[in-house]
């Protein structure tokens, strides 16, 4: 529990570093990042290309492992868990929304949304009921049986958000969720995320380039060269 906010911490990154080999060069993607996300946060991660936004999101979603530092979920260092446990943990606690939606092309909208629940071994009747409920919430009640190829970009992203929401995770992480959409649809998607944040207290962390989006989000984290430079408009301690 964080004393200043009285909200429980969902995830805490402690002195996380990550670098990549690029040819003969070693590129530092994250430099000693420490960062907390609290229950109910709605955080926009902004910064230029190559600033480390995606790398940070990959760390938070446990899709990648840090070179050093710890990623604490529910009091445990999740980055050191074996792959099988990380996969199970991620499927229950983290919802991911991709820039290019990453829907399964052979599955319908409802099947895509139901998929994470099926992986958890939940009964088929329950899975379908919950998947349809979530699709209704994101405004796709009439598109249950549409394949991704039959949906517009905005509709696909809604399906992707519904898929991330369906397991009722602690945290939803979205990497540039509006990048592949036109500005109007992009704003609709962000508005939807905000509504879900307010109505269900769902925690969101997403990256964006779009200044119009950062202007409507109160909690913006700015990154440059693998370092957090400002948070909520204030200078970061790390800088």
């Amino acid at each position: 529990m964080n004393t200043s906010t009285n909200k429980p911490i969902v995830v805490s990154l402690q002195k996380v570093t990550k670098s990549y080999e690029l040819g003969t060069q070693r590129i530092s993607a994250l430099n000693d990042i420490s960062f907390e996300i609290y229950k109910g946060d709605f955080i926009a991660l902004s910064g230029p290309s190559g600033s480390g936004k995606s790398t940070l999101l990959n760390m938070v979603t446990l899709l990648d492992t840090p070179d050093s530092g710890r990623i604490i979920f529910a009091g445990k260092d999740a980055s050191t868990l074996p792959d099988k446990k990380i996969t199970t943990f991620r499927s229950k606690e983290i919802g991911i929304v991709f820039q290019n939606y990453n829907l399964i092309p052979v599955l319908s909208a409802v099947e895509n949304v139901a998929f994470p629940l099926q992986l958890q071994g939940i009964s088929q009747a329950d899975v379908l009921r919950r998947a349809k409920q979530i699709l209704d919430r994101v405004g796709l009640a009439s598109h249950y049986n549409h394949r991704p190829s039959e949906l517009s970009g905005g509709q696909r992203q809604r399906v992707a958000i519904a898929r991330a929401l369906v397991t009722e995770p602690e945290l939803i992480v979205a990497d540039e969720p509006t990048a592949a959409l036109d500005s109007k649809t992009g704003m609709e998607v962000i508005t939807l995320m905000q509504e879900l944040n307010v109505s269900a207290n769902t925690t969101f962390l997403f990256s964006t380039h779009d200044p119009r989006i950062t202007s409507i989000v109160s909690n913006v984290v700015k990154m440059v060269d693998g370092t957090i430079i400002t948070r909520n408009g204030t200078q970061s301690e790390e800088k």
């Binding site: 996969t87 199970t88 991620r90 399964i104 992986l119 898929r163």
Partner: peptide, 9 residues
């Protein structure tokens, strides 16, 4: 994607 959604190796 399947792995990120929780499908084991």
């Amino acid at each position: 994607t399947l792995r990120s959604l929780g499908m084991q190796q």
